[in-house]
Design a protein around this nucleic acid. Structure first.
Lengths: 365, 365
DNA sequence: ACCCGTTTCGAGAAGCTTCCCGATAGTTTT
DNA sequence: AAAACTATCGGGAAGCTTCTCGAAACGGGT
């Protein structure tokens, strides 16, 4: 191989540097085999090994082969930590969701993960658990972990967005999905909530329901507001009166959904149909109605939103608005990847589609 | 490829070297504020800053305060990459599950994550998607990411365990849960599948069912084998004949569950009850039975396993064996944490409990 | 022989921390 | 007043990689 000692010349006169034996007697028990192990064992420098492994030019074919062979034999695995430290990128994407009990978020994650892992990214998942404080803490933790990008669906309680402004200020690519943040100008992937809600309520009207209630979500969430607006506009379009008492807001917990349902059903003039902001709470409505012996869809029509798998299974089957969850995941991931290439604020909206099932089909009446 | 311009110095007089202005004038725009920024700004050494931040002794109170104040003001966040590189620990735990579509694994993850994040660990989640190759690739990726520990539930197809042997050889703490690996002597958290199955089938017998089938899982999984054994022993205990035709094995997909169900129901002498290896496939059975107009529980008793939330909602409600999923997550995480303290092989088993519901309650007959 | 260009490789820094060890001060003890 | 401590702090290495700069060897041309 090439010599190892070299002279130095700052402003002349070369003082050579005698690299004495650095006691490479035994292999120095490593936890993991490093590039230096290969270099030492082959009597060459780590630079050369790195170059060979990186597939650089400027290296003799024989040397390259030797290095590659030994690397394989030792099962050398490059250390991503060292790499991340140097390159300032971890190849990790953070995903922050409010929960993962129901169908939506796990499915979203599967879709996103498929795209991301194909692009060479690992994923770090956090749940805010619908707590604003946890959300802030999670964002901080993900930032501290130096994630290369962030996929976020906010909490129903999030009203202050400074933690996301901090993300943007650090220029960490950020994509919101589903529960987005209207006052921040960031890329996002949403579905057409308004039109979905409009379809849902028009469907109820077509089926002859006239006193239609809406079990809404928290007003803090844009999704809730849009679905509410769809509800309102559908009534207006068909010249039905808008009764504020028929709109109840709940905090997306099952418990509160039950309370609100009872409130609606206990009215002096109870509604003859309920449009629920999502399927889990539509199902709570259905359970209570069944428990009370209310006939669905004859006495009460029910429509949900999101098409959770359980909606097709429950009896009567639940009419709902389909949203392409898996695709939302894929799209969000793709948008994030594009974002990491070159920043540009882009908002994508996916279509929704009504799936009419038994819970609202009573024919014309 | 080669560098651009360099000086020449054979025996002095340096031919020019055009190292262009590296502009270290202002603070050298950092992506993140480091310990060195604090040190420079305060005119002290990074060692001192580190000590102050680490809360070491050996530091003047005034200095410490000065450092802490500036750190707060600059919003200094220690770089975990550098730390991990130095300490050889990332504070990340890997979780590897076969899927995330159903109730079990997401809930498990929530339980585990609660314990782990309280202990200061982040979590990296991978899905093998029931593919052996993906599982191997995921284990490798997690190992490469230098996770400090691993929580694993294997694929139904995993029959070669070399990738886990590699984990053990590298002395990375490893805890299996639910779908464990019998031929490896590792810590694990399981539930009492055998006794759960025994209870389930005895319950069917008590309800007067006599020709009880078992829709089993893949024999490769210990869970399946134990539940099968519980089924067999329950029959034996009550002197019922064991008919091999009444045992069908499926691969845990919904599609295959339907095929196997039809096979059972199409028999010349169909069963009067089916014990399913888990709830998702029990529900497939129920759907087909309902579709065919078979009365549940009169003509066909059904019992599942795992108590997914949907089991209480479907009609008729599904009798099932409850397993404390959340607790399995917590226990597994705790066991892993203990493992990281000091290795010892410990196996924990959590109790199961039968929940009798409508799908099997027809009274004595 | 000498010079030059080409090919192949080595040294070293950077990226950010922590920790060991040694070095200054300042303070107390004989 | 000299010696011995103590309280604080700084230097530098290590952890692993990549990349830049420049050096060594070799071949060919004159």
């Amino acid at each position: 191989m090439r010599g190892k000692q070299r002279y130095y010349c700052k402003s002349c006169d070369f003082h050579f540097t005698i690299t004495e034996a650095s006691t490479p007697t035994e292999t120095r028990r490593h936890h993991e085999v490093t590039i230096m192990d290969i270099a030492n064992q082959l009597g060459i420098s780590k630079s050369t090994v790195s170059r060979a492994l990186r597939g650089h030019a400027d290296i003799h074919e024989a040397t390259r082969k030797m290095i590659l062979d030994l690397a394989q034999q030792l099962d050398y695995q490059p250390n991503p930590l060292a790499n991340a430290l140097l390159k300032r990128r971890t190849n990790i994407v953070g995903i922050l969701v409010p929960e993962f009990r129901h169908y939506f978020f796990p499915t979203f994650i599967m879709g996103a993960q498929e795209v991301l892992s194909k692009a060479g990214y690992n994923v770090m998942i956090c749940q805010s658990d619908e707590s604003y404080e946890t959300e802030v803490a999670n964002v901080k933790a993900l930032l501290r972990s130096r994630v290369d990008g962030l996929l976020v669906s906010i909490t129903a309680k999030t009203e202050n967005f400074d933690h996301f402004r901090a993300v943007m200020q650090k220029e960490v690519p950020l994509v919101f999905f589903n529960r987005v943040c209207p006052e921040l100008d960031t890329p996002q992937v949403i579905i057409d909530d308004y039109s979905g809600a409009l379809q849902a309520v028009e469907h109820l009207i077509e089926q002859g329901y006239r006193r239609i209630a809406h079990l809404a979500g928290p007003v803090t969430l844009q999704v809730s507001r849009l679905r509410l607006q769809g509800y309102i506009d559908a009534l207006q379009k068909h010249q039905l009166p808008l009764d504020q008492d028929l709109i109840v807001y709940h905090d997306l917990t099952e418990e509160h959904a039950r309370i609100c349902t009872r409130q609606l059903l206990d009215m002096p003039q109870p509604p003859d149909a309920i449009f629920a902001v999502n399927d889990p709470c539509a199902i709570e409505i259905m359970l209570i109605a069944k428990q009370r012996g209310i006939k669905i869809p004859q006495d009460l029509g029910i429509v949900g939103f999101s098409n959770d798998p359980i909606s097709a299974i429950i009896e009567p089957s639940l009419t709902t608005v389909e949203q392409p969850v898996w695709k939302i995941g894929e799209e969000s991931a793709r948008l994030l990847l594009e974002q990491m290439e070159r920043p540009k604020v882009e908002k994508r909206m996916l279509a929704t589609r009504l799936i009419a099932r038994d819970s609202s089909l009573r024919g014309k009446s």
